[in-house]
Design a protein around this nucleic acid. Structure first.
Length: 224
DNA sequence: TAGGCCATCTGGTCCT
DNA sequence: AGGACCAGATGGCCTA
């Protein structure tokens, strides 16, 4: 694929300026030249010239002019329709992106942040969420182990229900998205702020991780 | 001023 | 046929 040859901007320009305007253009070839489309102005000239020609020939030319005029009119409405569809599509696309952004905002709102933190960018939000979910599930796993050993299974069950159902509501599960290794390979606020990564252990994570994550995971551990 | 992020427009493709 | 989704292009704004 050659990126330059099929540039959308060029295609757009060509699309917008190609149709009936060209036929209406004063620079079009003379109306009586063979095979060339007639512009309304030029066809007027032709009908004047036809006054002295054969009646049948005149009729044929009149019909041709009529067809051209209706075609120009048709093309004009086609262009209008196309423009209208484009505007509607733009509107829908704008709304779609706004919906996507508000979904991202609601994702940001459930992620732990501090007041002085700058707003996470889109990509940061997604990566942070991915790591955050991993950290929470890791916390649950640890709680699972410690509670099983102390025989408090009922407490563990009730603890499990809440955060998991919440995560299921807004986010698709990480397993349905990219693999952990794909996410790890990318920059994320967590991995940059520390050596934390989903592949590491919680023992490594807690002392060094992102403040937000440290805060939330310690809260979760406290709750247990 | 270069680079990053974002919003918007656009044409193509797929789906209903 | 029309809508949803996607990716590329572009221009504006902000920051180091």
């Amino acid at each position: 694929m050659s990126p330059k040859s099929d540039c959308p901007q060029i295609q757009r320009t060509e699309l917008y300026y190609e149709t009936p305007d060209n036929e209406m253009s004063p620079s079009s070839p003379p109306c009586c030249s063979p095979g060339s489309p007639l512009s309304p102005a030029q066809s007027e000239d032709c009908t004047l010239a036809d006054r002295c020609s054969h009646p049948r020939e005149t009729d044929r030319k009149r019909m041709r002019v009529k067809r051209m005029r209706s075609r120009v009119k048709r093309d004009g409405t086609v262009v209008k329709q196309r423009k209208n569809r484009r505007l509607k599509a733009n509107d829908r696309e704008r709304n779609r992106m706004h919906n996507l952004n508000s979904a991202l905002d609601s994702l940001r709102s459930v992620l732990p942040t501090f007041p002085d933190d700058a707003k996470l960018t889109k990509i940061e939000t997604l990566r942070f969420a991915h790591n955050y979910i991993w950290a929470l599930s890791e916390t649950l796993r640890m709680a699972d182990q410690s509670l099983l050993s102390s025989g408090q299974q009922h407490l563990l069950d009730s603890l499990k229900k809440f955060p998991r159902s919440c995560l299921m509501m807004e986010l698709s599960s990480p397993s349905s998205c990219a693999s952990s290794s794909e996410w790890d390979s990318l920059y994320s606020p967590l991995s940059q702020a520390s050596s934390f990564s989903p592949t590491g252990s919680m023992d490594e994570l807690m002392p060094q991780s992102h403040p937000c994550l440290r805060h939330s995971t310690s809260l979760a551990v406290e709750f247990v």
